[in-house]
Amino acid sequence: MRGAQRRAPWILLSPFLVLFALTFLLPVVYAVGQSFTAVDRRGLFGEGGITSSFAGFDNYARALDDPTFVASIGRVLLFGVVQVPVMIVLVTVLALLLESASARWPGFFRAAYFLPYGIPGVIASILWSFLYLPGFSPIVAGLGKLGITVDFLGEGTVLWSIANIVTWSYAGYNMLIVIAQLKSIPGEVYEAAKMDGAGPFRLAWSVQLPLIRPALVLATVFSIIGTLQLFAEPQVLRTVSPAIDASYTPNFAAFTSAFTYNDLGVAAAQAVLIAVAAFVLSFVFLRVVSRRDS
């Protein structure tokens, strides 16, 4: 009996843990190992034999020496600094409006805003790539008739066209999270606020906002991680925008290093740098937020 109870948790856990180790832990270890390894191919295609040796920080140095990779980091940072706050503010305003007494048909609007989440990012990118395309897009044509010429795919604009796709895809989902948290605010809190004579703005600012903070913080952290992983949107838009190169985002650069240049050491170093950056940025953000608390 006791033996069965001692074994049971491990029997239940082991299938998950084995697969978790195979698909999460090992790849992380492998990537770190690969990033410190130099592969030497003798002969044009490695027919003279392939040897691996410890490379120290060589791969990292090469990754960071590449101006296009450094530029891609700067690009996603700029993207994140603008897109994430814009989306979070939009999400907060939409959630508060939908949960206010003034909103009509909240169920319909909630579903409409949430719908894009069910469309894969890459399909959303295909859709928007058509809507950005001059000579094809009814939006470009319509604006043209109003005398406004926009180039959604130009050097200076395409990053924000990507930001639009990302916002379109994920705002509704994040809004649902915020609404869930709004609904968890007990009714007494609202009653107390009403007794104190708080109007709708005061209610939103001093009662609802502080209480939905955990949801907003969480949405922000996941958006930061997501921003560093940008790939599908620029990859699809690349077919219509000459402003996008094969290392437009860090993740795109790692993909190109691995599959176009077959430079696995540098690709691994880039992947590790992305993961570390995601971790550091999330951590810093959480620290800043919690410091303000105390």
Partner: peptide, 10 residues
């Protein structure tokens, strides 16, 4: 918290 794309390549 591990980005999905970071594990895909390795």
């Amino acid at each position: 918290l591990v980005p999905g794309t970071a594990t895909a390549l390795p």
